[in-house]
């Protein structure tokens, strides 16, 4: 299993699509590592600067319907090769969410109020999150601030993370 957590990037917008996460013009790459420089290159979010804002980031907190649009697994891969193994959102598009767990990455859903609160309390601070899979809690910390947020993980999603992804899981089972 991977390490989950790290410095948090807050993306304050609904419906961030996979074309914004990794534009189609880079889909001619056939290795994951080649995608690394292009993460969020087309993100339509004021004041976002990929070069500045992605430095050292290990997790993303965002709003509803993250990862909508194209089915490209290049989107989770682009996150993965930038050491972002965790996305926390109000909701996800189906294919993106499945792709994350299929790769052994985590796409966690929190209620809108919890997401609102994270943006309000931590959005303006340099924030870190750690995932406690035993107690099923996310531990957010920022200079002087701390908050524990409970989360749930469906049994199938947990099984995929523990198996290291869907290929190994399915090849053993079917």
């Amino acid at each position: 299993m991977r390490n989950f957590g790290g410095k948090v990037l807050f993306l304050d917008r609904d419906d961030i699509n996979t074309d914004e996460i990794i534009p189609a013009r880079y889909l001619t790459e056939m290795t994951k590592t080649a995608l690394k420089p292009y993460l969020l290159e087309d993100l339509a979010l004021e004041e976002f600067d990929a070069a500045r804002d992605l430095a050292g980031v290990g997790a993303i907190v965002t709003r509803a319907n993250f990862g909508c649009g194209s089915s490209r697994e290049h989107a989770p891969w682009a996150l993965e090769v930038n050491d972002i193994h965790l996305v926390i959102a109000e909701s996800f598009a189906r294919i993106f969410r499945q792709n994350m767990f299929n790769c052994g990455l985590m796409a966690l859903t929190l209620p809108p109020e919890a997401i609102d609160r994270l943006f309000e309390r931590f959005g303006a601070h340099s924030t870190h999150v750690a995932v406690d899979l035993q107690r099923m809690r996310l531990n957010f910390t920022a200079d002087g601030l701390a908050e524990q947020v409970p989360f749930t993980l469906a049994p199938f999603d947990r099984a995929l993370i523990e198996a290291g992804g869907w290929v190994e899981y399915a090849d053993r089972r079917y």
Partner: peptide, 11 residues
Amino acid sequence: VGTTDLEVGIL
């Protein structure tokens, strides 16, 4: 689906 689901579908 994504590439991993596709992979399992192929296999």
